[in-house]
Structure formats: C-alpha cells, structure tokens
C-alpha cells in the first residue's frame, strides 16, 4: 500500500492506524467470530491458525486457477468446513482433549497448506475488488488507506448476524445451552453433539474466510509466514471480548489498528523501537487480561462447560 505518513506528518500515523484497523482487522474478525461460535457451544478450537493458513492457501490457489477471487473465498470456506468437521469429530471422541486436538490441527492445517501451497509461492492471483471510501478526500494517502475489502463489511455483518443468531433463533439458544450446561441441555432434548458439531464446522468455515483475506488483498501473494500467528491471537481475542460477537468486532478493529502502529511509525522515521511497537497488540492483550482477570471471580460471559465433554 502506498501509505506515506511522512507527507502527512504525525497525522499520518493516525491515518495509517485507522487504515490498519480497516485492513488488518479482517482476519481477526473472522477467526474470532468463528472461535466465538465454537466456544459458545462449549468447545475450543485452537486449530484456527491451521484453518487460517489453509483458507489463505486455498483461496489463493483457486483464485489463481479459476481467475475468480470470489470462487477462492468460497473454496476457503469449504476447506474450513472440512477442517472444522475433522476437529469436531476428533474432539467428540471419548478421551480426546480439545486443546491437544487443536494443537494437532494447527500442525495439520499449516503442514497441509505449506505442502499444497508450494507451487503457488511465485504467482499473483486475482485479488478481491476494493470498495473506495475515501473519495471525499483529495489526499492520496487517505484515499488509498480507505480502499476497503468487501470482506470487511461481510465481517461486520457476520458479527451482527451471529449476535442475532445467539439471541433470536432456536439454534442460537441451543448452542448457548450446549456450551453452558450440556447436561441440562440434554435434559431439554437438545442433541448437544450435533449442535456442537455444527458450531465447530461453521466456526472453522468463518475462520477460513478470514484466511482468504490474507492472500486476496494487497500485496496478494501466498507465503508460508503470511498469518504471523493471527489465528492464535484471535482465539485469545475471544476471551478479551468475553464471548460476545459484537465485542469480537470491536476487539478485532482494535487489534488491527494496533498492528499497524509499528510499520507506520517506522515509515515516519521512528526506527528504534520497531519491534516494540510491532509487539503492541500482544502487550495490549496481556495488559487487558491482567486488568480484567481476578482470582476471586469467574470470567464473565465464559460458557460454563467450555472445554468439557
């Protein structure tokens, strides 16, 4: 992106951070919403990092092969469904622990993505069309910062949709019941395993769409280091957002913005603390966790049966 904060001075940092929130937030948004859905049903999917990478690779490959980036997004979602189904099946076996299965799924997903992605490292695939929101400004830096991926709006819609599902639909209540007290849910005639299976698979599909953003947006290349651990960060973000889809959205924007603080300061000429500023989302997470946790209180909003059979 042709961001030139140097021409705008310190204001450039603000523009870059806002632009970063619009771009960098997208993977966080989709993965955290997917994880939010999964965890609300009482299961944990740590494998989101693997799902994110598989989504990124698949979207890129299909976009390259078919010439249609939207086909790439769809293919990513399908791969997410499959990975989610594997995780759901695994973790519903009697002696399988969610966390252990999740770590296995990180390795499985990323290994698979690296293997199939080898031949796609070089080319440039067709990217998703961008929606210009900066037409009002005549500053090129602002204009380019405000050219937003359609996935951004889909992500926002998904967070409100998920909130609606949780509060206004039968299936949403079933998911919450399964996550909070599976025994009571069973007594109410809810098929807890089926509900959780669906929540995990759909959650992984959402996360995979977040992966599609990584490769179908500027600079539009596939590389193995492309996710940079965002899949894992997004899982932590769900805790930060107290399992609320709308707070997931806010947290994703915050993280996306924080993430671009380092690069934009660097382009301003602040070189010294480059890595410190790059670490700001992580430092931020830790600070929030320390501030909100207390040994005397249970985490508000946490599904009562999270990670339990």
């Amino acid at each position: 992106m042709q961001l030139t904060p140097d021409t705008l001075g310190p204001w450039g940092v603000a523009v870059a951070v806002a632009g970063g929130a619009l771009r960098g937030s997208i993977p966080y948004m989709f993965v955290s919403l997917g994880e939010c859905l999964t965890e609300t049903s009482g299961k944990i999917n740590l494998g989101m990092e693997g799902v994110l990478l598989m989504g990124a690779m698949t979207a890129f490959a299909i976009s390259d092969l078919t010439g249609s980036p939207w086909m790439g997004v769809l293919a990513a979602a399908l791969v997410g469904l499959i990975l989610g189904a594997i995780h759901a099946w695994l973790t519903q076996q009697p002696a399988v622990n969610d966390v252990a299965a999740g770590i296995a799924m990180i390795l499985f997903g990323s290994g698979l993505a690296f293997f199939f992605g080898k031949r796609f490292v070089a080319p440039m695939a067709p990217q998703l069309p961008l929606i210009p929101l900066g037409g009002w400004s005549h500053t090129p830096a602002v204009e380019s910062a405000l050219r937003v991926s359609p996935l951004f709006f889909i992500g926002i819609a998904a967070s409100f949709l998920l909130h609606w599902v949780f509060t206004r639909t039968r299936w949403g209540l079933n998911v919450r019941a399964a996550g909070d007290d599976p025994q009571a849910a069973r007594a109410l005639g809810i098929d807890v395993n089926a509900v959780r299976f669906a929540a995990i698979t759909l959650g992984a599909a959402l996360a995979a769409v977040g992966g599609a953003h990584l490769t179908l947006y500027f600079p539009g290349i596939w590389s193995e280091g492309i996710s940079g651990g965002q899949g894992l960060m997004a899982v932590a973000l769900v805790i930060f957002a107290k399992w609320s889809p709308r707070r997931c959205l806010a947290a994703a924007l915050l993280f996306g913005g924080a993430q671009s603080l380092g690069p934009s300061l660097q382009s301003l000429g602040v070189q010294g603390y480059y890595h410190v500023f790059n670490a700001s989302p992580y430092v931020f997470t830790l600070l929030v966790m320390i501030a909100t946790c207390s040994p005397n209180r249970r985490l508000a909003g946490m599904p009562g049966a999270l990670g339990k059979k």
């Binding site: 209540l173 919450r176 019941a177 909070d180 025994q183 009571a184 849910a185 007594a187 109410l188 009562g304």
Partner: peptide, 11 residues
C-alpha cells in the same frame, strides 16, 4: 423437575 437444575445458568 430434577434435583439437578435443568436451567441454563447464563440465560
């Protein structure tokens, strides 16, 4: 009505 409540606590 069971001895163990079949109410979902967070709802």
């Amino acid at each position: 009505v069971f001895q163990h409540f079949t109410l979902i606590p967070s709802m």
